[in-house]
Write a protein that binds this DNA or RNA. Structure first.
Lengths: 239, 239
DNA sequence: GGTTTTTGGTGAACGGTGTTTACAAGAGTT
DNA sequence: AACTCTTGTAAACACCGTTCACCAAAAACC
């Protein structure tokens, strides 16, 4: 059945156990507790054995980041799939809410992936979810409310590049969009939405609001409403 | 001249050296390099000696956070003082720009203070700057463009509390504001501005924009314009 | 089937870490 | 001078990442 040899299966198995142990340590006792010796202890082996699977502690941590991104991506896709309204506005809302819920439920993972001054996030990991969803919502929002001249000219170059990235992202999934639908004004608003979404979630996870918010959820929903209005659809959108 | 005894002066001196060494290590080699032994090495003493000054490594790190906040606060106040326009819109812009510049110039410090899943920030540190400035801009923006009923009712309770915090913050500095000037609509917009400011800066510092932005400054300025417009003054404000 | 190679593990070791403990030397006080 | 308080030390403990020599078993080969 399985194409792999016995050795390959065993290797894949312990590799999975390593990731699992690392993840558990991160969740339960924080980033600094993800130590080679602790992981090895969990598997009943010794620390040097882990070097047969990862070049260094840092490499293992990077792998951990990838795993986290992948898990989060499937959760966001789940949220997308669970929405049966067919309205893109509802889909965006569902995904954003799920992103917030995921971040609050996984603060250590969120901090590791989204708030470490390390190399930029791999575009193939978290990026794909974001790009996929962003491209989809832009493409389906046929009413072009934002003109290109709304955005400063200095930003055009960057936004055009992002425009191409978005077009590529959705075209991989078989969807083609016309240039006039995916205009710079909309792209700019998408970026601004990411700023607000990330800002709110990170502030909430890290407890950095300027005052104690007893129930941040309505505030988040309110921001989401404003975001969707700004981006161009609210109440009046069709799939 | 100095009221302190000789011993107290010496103690204060080495304490300052400890903080300074810790700060240098953080800046030059990252959070994980801020180690008791490294600090001690820098001062020419041994690690256990540091326990005469701090209860633990964690306590020292907390002190470091406070120092960073204090330094950032003076920088932001500098930016405020350097603005001679007398227009609050310009002041807000100056402070926000300085905040971004500071964060980009001090990524490790920013990450430690603003993106660690630890206890909420001490309100007396960074909070005072924010509250002071926010209160000031709200109080001076006499045109009440935002009505209370713009904000969802669920948020009223929290916003009223924040309103009181703001009033207290500015009243400490001798300024008194009337309730109708500092209405909930404005307060809500202040919080939203903080979300966007923090979001953009953190994304830039951590390199988490969904695409490579070649020159993020115009994008920041553009967001700042939008923020100031949303909050109620732009071009047409008087001190 | 016997031999060889590859793989995945061990244990010891090196230098690093936070932290505790016992102890010493100097400063300040009486 | 005697005493106390302060601030340092050295040694030790348990932990960390990493390297190295070694080893047994599985796989591959002749």
């Amino acid at each position: 059945m399985t194409e792999a040899t016995r050795r390959e299966r065993l290797r894949a198995e312990t590799e999975r156990e390593i990731r699992q142990a690392a993840r558990a340590l991160l969740v339960e006792r924080g980033r600094d507790a993800v130590t080679l010796r602790a992981i090895a202890r969990e598997l009943g082996i010794t620390a040097p054995a882990l070097y047969r699977y990862y070049d260094s502690h840092d490499a293992l941590l990077r792998q951990l980041c990838d795993d986290i991104c992948a898990d989060m991506a499937t959760e966001l896709y789940d949220a997308l799939a669970e929405d049966t309204s067919g309205q893109v506005g509802c889909q965006v809302r569902a995904v954003c809410r799920r992103f917030r819920r995921w971040a609050l439920a996984h603060p250590q993972e969120f901090a590791l992936v989204f708030a470490s001054p390390r190399d930029p996030l791999g575009a193939d990991q978290f990026g794909s979810v974001f790009l996929q969803l962003a491209g989809r919502l832009i493409a389906s929002n046929l009413v072009a409310k934002h003109a290109d001249d709304e955005v400063p000219e200095v930003l055009h170059e960057d936004l055009v590049r992002f425009q191409q990235v978005l077009i590529d992202a959705v075209s991989v999934h078989g969807v083609t969009v016309e240039d006039d639908v995916l205009n710079l004004g909309k792209i700019y608003h998408v970026v601004q939405s990411w700023v607000r979404l990330y800002g709110h979630v990170a502030l909430e996870v890290f407890g950095r609001f300027p005052f104690a918010v007893s129930n941040p959820e309505p505030m988040f929903d309110s921001m989401l409403d404003q975001m969707l209005t700004d981006i161009g659809f609210q109440e009046d959108d069709v799939s």
